[in-house]
Every structure is written in structure tokens, then in C-alpha cells.
Design a protein around this nucleic acid. Structure first.
Lengths: 320, 320
DNA sequence: AGAGCGAATGATATCGATATCAAGATATCG
DNA sequence: CGATATCTTGATATCGATATCATTCGCTCT
């Protein structure tokens, strides 16, 4: 900037003003300086500006990783959120700093103006860790009771569970099974909604715990039910892949879907819709969720009042 | 830091050294300062450090968006790369700045020490744009001829196309169809390999252009072939989804896969493997690609010699 | 005892931008 | 014509860290 100032025959500060479109400089001066800047390929030093302005225009997105591997990054779930987040933040002139959580809070995170946390961590430990950083934070997941200085956005998992239960009841199912992992706070909410609604009609579903949410896992689940000679006529699977696996296993076993067993998945992935038969499922709009996350951090950064929000889910009844 | 210095009764610079584990300070002083820092929740100002050290320890990842919507972010393709990239860079102490390309080069990008570009853009325009920034850059995609100051990493698409052609030839197919979008540089390479290899045996495949790489698009493609009464006995689809759609349409039309028509997809997505029938496909290892991209930028940042590299592809023959 | 050395600490300048306040140049008004 | 308002520009301090060079102190060696 000093070099530019010399070239243009003005002072540094005038250059600064010219480049930031300040109305304080004469239009001709401004254009002359801007032309020179382009010509010489001037590049603003973002660190310097951030230092002076005491902000970074950056939001850190922290993706919770399963301890085992980098597997989570492969799952479509955090990544679809990322789409919405990234779009919204860049539109607002903010940058997205992507971090995968590994161990302690990263130093780089502290450079951010705000945090978005995807995945609460087992027993909220991720949330607690980043709460300490003291930055505006928005967490994706299930609403929590703790009145901390952060806000939660998620889809209404409890309502999702309830809507599945209602559907099963309305078509006369009496022996439903829940497949998923209740340690996962979001799935726990689905389970609670499911169980509570059924309990109102004197029905107690079977809980089948699955840690993986893959097609294979769904196949396994149904096979194990069959081997244990469990009687069941409805399956609520916590992911579309689980559901599709379950259906495949059911068909192999000679059972008809949905005549013998109803199956409802979760997420409404594109694949479920084109599955044969088309999968019934609970839709949660992730792209929109990402946008919401982004808007909330931005609001917090600008000291506007922000509240937690659960997005509505929709039961999509197709053929299963 | 100045406050800490006062608390500890030493100078700022000693605090700085103590916190960066410099051997220049007395161990007791160091620990005393560190304890104070923890106690008072001291946070390093990253902008200031970056300004002084003239580096940012940040690599910008630019995701090419289709102009229409944020759709690209949904596709598994750039996102799986991101997994590998993110893992590798954070391990090396670098941060990942995620940007979606929209219009001109973002100012924030210039803060980075290096660039990773996912998607070359139509006619290389994205590459050209970011080449101007003058930072170390690694591009994911098809190798290009231009001897610019960047490096390309990708899978060997040409080889992928050749291997599919070889397979079709070896099982006696004479009327193959290619489904994909040759405007996309990577797919163009697949097409060239496919065509060249077949040409050696006097066979000229039919090119069926498809801009979407969805299941529906695959279904459409096969239907249009059928309507036009085209004779074909093999399909090379440029994505697994296209291939699965094609198979579904073939089955609907009463054709047998692979007896009447062989189908080979691309990418080896988990879904293809669990498809019924299990999908034959060309595997490219994206996670590894991401790691490679990251390593190359880091090497370039450290002024080590770096060359473009194409990763081998594997033909995975399953049931189709 | 004085030179020489190493360990520990400090003073100062610097990275590249912007905020604040001051001041010169020009225009407007009574 | 002088006084005041407006436009334009500049000088200086500052953001929070680190590099460089200087200094202090205690110790060993001859």
C-alpha cells in the first residue's frame, strides 16, 4: 500500500480510502489509485486488516469426527449442511473455516468471529469444549436442556418419531421395531417421540440397537430379528440406508413390504425416492438447516437476539 | 499479552517466548507464564501473528459450483475429496478455508498460503482465474496441456475409459454406448480412452450426452435409446447413479443385465456395491485423492518440487 | 582479578492495514 | 472581503504479535 501511495503520489491512507470506496476521496483520485492497484496486482493483506479491525469475517465450522476414522466426513449428513452454510456465509461476505475436531480446541478456531458445531459429541462433550472458547456458537443437533451461551438448530426429531408412530397406528400395526442408536442424541429424540406416542395406545416397540447406519447394517438387523423369531409388522429405521437394507433383507426372507411389514426410513435421501419400492421416510431439509445455522451465527455475531429453533419434519409416505 | 506480562512481572516478549515453548526462557518462568495464561483464559490473536510471520497457515479450498444452484455441494464427489484434504491439512497444522466459487476471486482467498481447486470450470476458466492470484495451487481434474504455474491431481480418466472398453471387447460386445457429458474435462478423457481403445478393434461407440448424473437421467437415457430403436449391447455410464438408472430402465423394458446389455458405471460408490444386481464400475479413490491434493499444496508452499499426478483407476467387475 | 562465555531477559522496530484528529484548499455566504 | 462551511488530504497512533540486537547477571578459566 505504501508503494502504491508513492506511485500515485498520495499518502497511504488515501490509498486505503480509495480502495475501500470511501466517499472521502476525490473520485478522480480514487479511480487513479484503483487503476494503479489493478495494474500492479496489488493484494490486500487480510491479516493486517483483521488485526486492525479486530474481526476476521470468518466463521469456523467444526465437524465432529467419529474417533475411529475420518468416516464422518464421508457421510452425506454434515456435508449437506455444509452446502447451505457455505452458501449463506459467503453471500454475507464471511469465510468458512473448516475444521475437523480432533482433541483440543484448535488455535485457528479462535481466529473466527463465530462457531458452527456439527455434531454435539457423546454426552455433549464437544459442545462443552467449544462453549469455553466464548465465541458466538450455533450447534446442529438435538435441543439440550443446559442453558449455555449457545443456540441449537436441528430438526424436530421428537416430532419425526411421533409422526412415524402415528402412521403405524393408523394402518393398524401392533408390533413395531425401532432400529438406530439411542446414544446419538438426535436418534434418542426420535425414539422418545416414537415410544411415547405408541405408549398412548398401549404399544411398546422393540428397540434394536445399531451403531452403523449402512445398508449392510439394515440387512443384519432384520436377519437377527428373524433368527430370534421376533414377531414384528413395522420397522422405523433411523436412516434411509438402514431402511433400504431392512427391506432388502425382508424381501430375501420372503416377506412382503408393506403388506407383511411396513418400513419407514429417515432423511429422505434422493436414493430412497428412487428405491424399488419407493421408500417412505421422514424428510429433514438439510440445505435449509445449513442456511439457518449460518443466519443464526451471523445474527449472534451482530449482537442480535437469537433463539434455538427446531425445524419441522415431514412424513413422506411412499410405497413401503 | 501485555497484560500477562504485567501479571507475571516480565516483558511481553518473554511471555511470547514462554507461550511458544522457546528454549530461551527459564523453565520456571515459562511454566509460571503458561499457568497464568490458562488461568486468565488468554487467547492468541491469530491475525497479529499471521501479520508478523507473513503467512497464514491456511489453505483455501475452492469448490466449483454449477451456476444454477448450490447443487454441486450436495454431490458426494467434491465432498469426499474434502474429507481427505481436511484430514491431511489439519494434521499438518494448517487450516482449511472453504469457498464456493461465485464470480470473481474472493479477497479472503488471498489470505491463504495455497489453493486447492475442485473442478476446473468450463473450458478451464476457473483454473485461469485462480492462476492469476499467484499462489501455490493444486487442481483436481483432468490433466491439462497448459504449462501454468499449477499442478493437477486426478484419477486417470483415460485409463478408466480404456479399461471399460477392454472389458466390453473381452466379452464380445459390439455395440457400446457412452453416457455422460464430454464438456466435462474428466468425462471427456474417459470418452477418449473408451473411443480410442474401441477404434483399435473397428468399433465406434454411440455417444449419448447427459448433463445430469442422476438416477432419473440414466432411466431417461435408456428410454430414449429404446424409443429411437438403437441397437446396443453395452453401456458405459459416467457415474454409478447413471448406471443404476440405466439398469432399472433396462429391466423395465424386459432386457436382461448383463445377458442382453452389459453396464459399467463410474466411481464405485457404496451404493453401487449394494445395488441389485451389484454394479460393475470403475473405482477412483477420492479420499486418497484428497490426501494427495493436500500433500502437494503443502509441498509447493514449502518450495519443494511438485509434479502433476494421475491416480490409477481400477475396474471392479461385479454382476452387471 | 579480569576476560570470556552462556543463560535469561528486555528495548525497539516491524508486519500492513485503518481510526482519529488536524490541516490545507476551495467554495459559499452575508 | 473576511468568515464559515465543505471537500480533500495527510500525520500519527494503533491493532497484537515476533525478530533482532542489546543488556544484565552469574559463572568458569587462566
Amino acid at each position: 500500500m505504501a508503494d502504491l501511495a508513492e506511485l500515485a503520489g498520495v499518502s497511504k491512507i488515501t490509498v486505503s480510502r480509495a480502495l475501500s470506496e470511501s466517499p472521502l476521496v476525490n473520485i478522480q483520485t480514487r479511480e487513479r489509485v484503483q487503476a494503479l492497484a489493478r495494474k500492479h496486482g496489488y493484494k490486500l493483506n487480510v491479516s493486517a486488516r483483521n488485526l486492525r479491525l479486530r474481526r476476521s469475517h470468518t466463521v469456523a465450522v467444526i465437524v465432529e469426527m467419529k474417533p475411529s476414522s475420518g468416516r464422518t466426513m464421508w457421510d452425506p449428513y454434515p456435508l449437506s449442511l455444509l452446502g447451505g452454510i457455505s452458501h449463506e456465509l459467503t453471500s454475507a461476505g464471511y469465510s468458512v473455516l473448516l475444521t475437523t475436531r480432533q482433541g483440543a480446541a484448535d488455535a485457528a478456531v479462535q481466529a473466527a468471529d463465530g462457531l458452527i458445531l456439527l455434531g454435539q459429541g457423546v454426552r455433549q462433550d464437544a459442545v462443552r469444549l467449544y462453549d469455553k472458547v466464548g465465541l458466538p456458537m450455533v450447534v446442529w443437533g438435538a435441543a439440550d436442556q443446559g442453558g449455555d451461551n449457545h443456540v441449537v438448530v436441528g430438526s424436530d426429531n421428537r416430532q419425526g418419531g411421533i409422526s412415524v408412530a402415528e402412521r403405524f397406528l393408523s394402518i393398524g400395526r401392533r408390533n413395531p421395531v425401532f432400529i438406530g442408536n439411542p446414544d446419538h442424541p438426535e436418534m434418542a429424540q426420535r425414539l422418545f417421540g416414537f415410544v411415547d406416542e405408541l405408549a398412548g395406545h398401549g404399544i411398546k416397540p422393540l428397540l434394536l440397537r445399531r451403531n452403523d447406519f449402512t445398508l449392510e447394517s439394515g440387512i443384519d438387523a432384520v436377519r437377527s430379528l428373524h433368527e430370534r423369531k421376533v414377531r414384528f409388522d413395522a420397522i422405523f429405521a433411523c436412516s434411509d440406508l438402514l431402511a433400504m437394507g431392512a427391506i432388502r433383507a425382508l424381501v430375501e426372507l420372503g416377506l412382503s413390504v408393506p403388506n407383511d411389514v411396513s418400513v419407514i426410513g429417515y432423511d429422505d435421501t434422493p436414493l430412497g425416492a428412487s428405491f424399488l419400492p419407493p421408500l417412505s421416510t421422514v424428510r429433514q431439509n438439510w440445505q435449509e438447516g445449513g442456511v439457518l445455522l449460518a443466519r443464526k451465527v451471523l445474527a449472534m455475531i451482530h449482537n442480535q437476539p437469537v433463539t434455538s429453533q427446531m425445524m419441522a419434519t415431514t412424513l413422506v409416505v411412499r410405497a413401503t
